[in-house]
């Protein structure tokens, strides 16, 4: 099953490699990983999307907690949560396609952030499935380039990950 883990980790050199090294050394999967410092710059917040049986997810969280630099780990799946991913997608947009592409972007609440004679670059935010749906809705031939950040997640309501 897919799980989304939120990790608070010391913002120190090499901390990221300890996390990714742990996943590869123990044969766990990383579907996506995002990381950036928090409002407290000594600390980073990482979101890892992974999948595995409940036993494996339990081991992953325990092993992550064992890393000296990891402050806290929560499995967002354990309660209501929100996740968002950002995609920048460059598409061919010439002639008739230009209007059509603009409409598509509007339908998905995307924004066109760069325009050339032949192309648009569209910014699209949402859960991963929405970004997938957008890609599916396009003719593969018009897609020039995509870049996705992977999911960032946060608990709903009062659920807070902080020290």
């Amino acid at each position: 099953m897919r799980h989304i883990l939120s990790i608070l980790i010391e913002n120190e050199a090499g901390a990221l490699s300890r996390v990714t090294g742990l996943f590869s050394a123990r044969g766990y999967n990383i579907d996506s990983l995002t990381v950036q410092t928090t409002e407290d710059v000594t600390m980073s917040r990482m979101t890892i999307v992974t999948h595995g049986s409940d036993d494996i997810i339990e081991q992953i969280t325990k092993q992550l907690n064992k890393l000296v630099e990891v402050v806290k780990v929560i499995d967002l799946n354990e309660a209501d949560h929100i996740e968002r991913e950002l995609m920048l997608i460059k598409v061919r947009a010439t002639g008739k396609e230009r209007d059509e592409m603009k409409r598509m972007a509007d339908i998905f609440r995307g924004r066109i952030i760069d325009v050339t004679e032949k192309s648009y670059t569209i910014e699209l935010t949402g859960p991963g499935e929405k970004l997938d749906a957008f890609i599916k809705a396009l003719d593969p031939a018009v897609i020039l380039e995509t870049v996705r950040t992977g999911a960032s997640g946060i608990g709903r309501g009062e659920r807070i990950l902080k020290i």
């Binding site: 081991q59 325990k62 064992k66």
Partner: peptide, 8 residues
């Protein structure tokens, strides 16, 4: 003492 040893 190591939680990760338990249920591994």
């Amino acid at each position: 003492i190591d939680p990760s040893s338990i249920a591994k």
